[in-house]
Amino acid sequence: MILVNTGNGKGKTTASVGQAIRALGQDHTVAFGQFMKRDNQAGEQRVLHKLLGDLFLAPGDGFLTKPEQFPKHRASSEKLIWWAKERIPDVDMLVLDEALYALSSKLITREELEELIALARNNDTHLVLSGRNAPQWLINEADLVTEMTEIKHHYKAGVPAQEGIEF
């Protein structure tokens, strides 16, 4: 199955981590990759390292904020794409967190994502993709799409990101 967690609200990564935990609880083999995110910054990364070992990868450089950062970010994204392709035949589930952010930022191409989807389907590997702005073609292709909608966020009231909540 192809599962997509999208929308402008909080919870896309959290839902993806939860899906991975659920699969692990059923003795499924899970690989988890994160686009954009630097390794060892967020609480879920520490846990995923412990649970998954080499089946967890976060090769990112943070979020893309300046055009001159693009080549470095693209190289990190390519590394994750190749890592994912190598793991698909050997796992029951592959989670690619922030894949849609990488797609909308042109750090990965539609063709690369479509190739991963085809590989996942051909290998009976569940593929979980997260990030804002899921394109219509992906919504059409996916088996399950969940949209997180922000109703209220403490950041808008001036409260900064909180350890254990945002990271």
Rank of each mutant, 00 (worst) to 15 (best):
V4G: 04
N5T: 07
N5R: 02
G9R: 07
G11C: 10
K12E: 07
T13K: 03
S16K: 02
S16P: 02
S16I: 04
A20L: 03
G25V: 08
G25M: 06
D27F: 03
H28F: 13
T29N: 00
A31S: 12
F32D: 06
F35Q: 05
F35G: 06
R38F: 08
R38G: 09
N40A: 14
E44V: 13
Q45C: 09
L57F: 15
A58K: 04
A58T: 12
G60N: 03
D61R: 14
L64I: 09
T65G: 01
T65C: 10
P67V: 08
E68N: 11
R74I: 11
A75K: 12
S76C: 14
S76P: 00
S77M: 09
I81M: 07
I81P: 02
E86N: 14
R87L: 13
I88F: 04
I88R: 02
L94T: 09
V95G: 03
V95S: 03
D97K: 05
E98I: 12
Y101P: 00
Y101C: 11
A102S: 09
L103P: 00
T109F: 06
E112R: 01
L113Y: 03
E115Q: 14
E115C: 07
A118I: 13
A120K: 02
N123E: 12
L129V: 14
N133Y: 14
A134D: 04
Q136L: 14
Q136C: 00
E141G: 01
E141T: 15
A142M: 08
A142D: 08
T146F: 08
M148W: 08
M148D: 03
E150Y: 00
A157H: 12
G158E: 09
P160V: 12
P160G: 10
Q162T: 12
E163W: 06
E163A: 13
G164I: 13
